[in-house]
Simulated scan of single mutants.
Amino acid sequence: MTDELDLLRGADPVPADAERWRDRPLDFEGERRLRQLVSGARRRRTVRRVVMGVATATAGAVVAIALTVSGPASSPAVAAPVALRPHTSAADVSLADIARRARAAAAAEPGKSVRGSHVQDWSLGLESGKDAVTVPQETLTRWNADGSGSLLVVATDPRHPGRPVIDDGDPPRTVHDGKVVRRESYPPGIDGANQSYFEPPPAGAAALRDYLAVWHPDADRDPGELLGAVQDFLRVWTPGPREIANLATLLSRDAGLRPAGRVTDRMGREGQAFVRTTAGLQQMVVLDPDDGRVLDMEETGTRDDPEYRLKAGDVLSYTAWLS
């Protein structure tokens, strides 16, 4: 116990010169210090991990949709998506230029970030000796000025991937062939306080990097963790121009990304792709070349893995932001 107490005192998540402590969450600096205590035990990403981006509730939707789109004598119509294929062109824009464009846009109109997001994602469940895939799902999270909010999760028909299945109206509703997996309403006052990144993002790229490191302890020093932190942050917040510029600046400086070319994403949008490759894994980020918004993030394997029936180039997961 003494060792643990010494570590906690050393981290000093609530320094003496901070505001008087009451029954409130740690600020992001306190969270960062506290989480660094256990960062050494954090499990690193590998190709052999089980990708669990889709919640357990989606398992029921997979069965339901599989029964819907397949006959009694056929196999479920659930298939892994094909990897995005960027191509170089004369219209390519560098990551540094995109960051400059984003900063110029933010200077003209800073705007503000909005708590909540609209995102479609898919992940591959890995099980030794078996083919295991999930269906795409779409999530819309909203938070209101009084702290009330709502969550809508819809699984999509795998026969028609790459099109939104939630109409972000008032109230939100499903469209096309979506199947509701989860629908929640939250009372006033909650305001997402039980989420990661519950505090509004700070001003400045350096401050934003420290803020991201609260929930991904090595995001301020490890490119892979930074990309993971950006992905998680964008599930909680829809960034305004200022935060878009800060994110683009961080990606251009600290994410270890190299240009891959232009790409048309699964939503039919034109973007500029950048990739980072490590042992067995390639991470791709697709940005809007005009304003720096993150459109997509995708992970693919870079080598065969017979145990999990993976081949080089197989998609492990993808995320597409719709707002």
Rank of each mutant, 00 (worst) to 15 (best):
A73M: 11
R45C: 05
T264I: 08
P171M: 07
A96C: 08
H87V: 15
V38P: 02
K311T: 05
R100Y: 01
R142E: 12
V230A: 08
T46V: 08
L257G: 06
A41R: 14
D177N: 12
T278V: 07
A205H: 02
H118L: 13
L140N: 06
M52K: 07
T46I: 06
R22F: 02
V54E: 12
H87Q: 14
D168I: 11
L322V: 13
V286M: 01
R235H: 06
S196Q: 07
L281F: 07
Q282R: 13
D222F: 15
P241K: 06
L124Y: 01
A18E: 07
A219I: 07
D12M: 06
E243F: 09
S89A: 12
Q283P: 01
F28E: 04
L126Q: 11
A245W: 10
G256Y: 02
L151S: 09
P188A: 15
T302N: 08
A41H: 15
I65N: 00
T141S: 13
L227R: 12
Y308W: 00
K179L: 11
E29T: 12
T264S: 01
E199Y: 13
Q195G: 04
L152A: 09
R183A: 10
T56W: 09
L5C: 03
R276S: 03
R9D: 06
G228K: 03
A83C: 06
R49Y: 04
E199F: 13
E4A: 15
S185P: 04
V263M: 01
G149Y: 09
A102F: 13
A18I: 00
D296H: 15
L310Q: 03
L84H: 08
G116L: 03
V63G: 00
R221G: 14
D121A: 14
Q195H: 05
I190N: 09
G224M: 15
G271V: 00
P25T: 11
G125L: 01
Y211E: 09
K311L: 02
I65S: 00
A107I: 11
G60L: 02
Y308D: 00
P200S: 06
V69G: 09
D97V: 04
P188H: 05
E307D: 12
H87W: 06
G189M: 14
R45E: 14
G149S: 14
K179G: 08
W143T: 08
P217L: 10
A107M: 13
A61M: 07
P306C: 03
A99R: 05
V294D: 00
P110T: 10
A18L: 08
V230P: 04
S123A: 15
W21N: 02
V51C: 01
V180W: 05
L140H: 11
R24F: 02
G162P: 07
E4Q: 12
P171W: 01
Q231S: 09
F28N: 00
D97N: 10
P259H: 07
R209M: 02
V62W: 01
I98D: 09
D167P: 03
A273Q: 09
R303F: 03
L226Y: 14
G60K: 02
H118F: 14
N246D: 15
R235A: 01
V51Y: 10
S117I: 04
R182L: 12
S148E: 01
D222N: 15
A213D: 10
V263E: 04
T277F: 12
A108W: 07
A260C: 08
G111C: 10
T319S: 12
R49M: 11
A279M: 03
